[in-house]
């Protein structure tokens, strides 16, 4: 079997995205450029979440309702966090 499977790809991407999130914190970017860093992190969390849902949970080929429910949950939570973050800026 091929090494290029959806799950293997997802794993590599997850490692990279986690590294990037860590670097944002470690380098001080989260502090100095907090707003873009925060939204970037939420974007990364969305990508990571979708990878887990599609390729680990294998919902890519699941009935639409379930895919929509779980991805919808992720999108809802992240956008509400973004909203809360934004209200905290003032």
């Amino acid at each position: 079997m091929s090494y290029y499977t959806a799950a293997n790809r997802a794993w590599i991407l997850l490692l990279l995205a986690t590294g990037l999130t860590w670097w944002l914190g470690e380098s001080g970017m989260a502090e100095s450029a907090s707003v873009p860093a925060a939204f970037l992190m939420l974007g990364l969390a969305l990508v990571k979440g979708v990878l887990v849902i599609y390729d680990f949970m294998e919902l890519r080929h699941a009935p639409r309702m379930w895919k929509l429910l779980i991805v919808g949950w992720l999108a809802f939570v992240l956008s509400m966090i973004a909203l809360a973050y934004w209200t905290g800026l003032r």
Binding site: A30, A37, A38, M41, L42, L44, A45, G49, L74, I81
Partner: peptide, 10 residues
Amino acid sequence: ILFPLVYVMR
């Protein structure tokens, strides 16, 4: 979600 939310986002 928890990691960026609680540990990193400022």
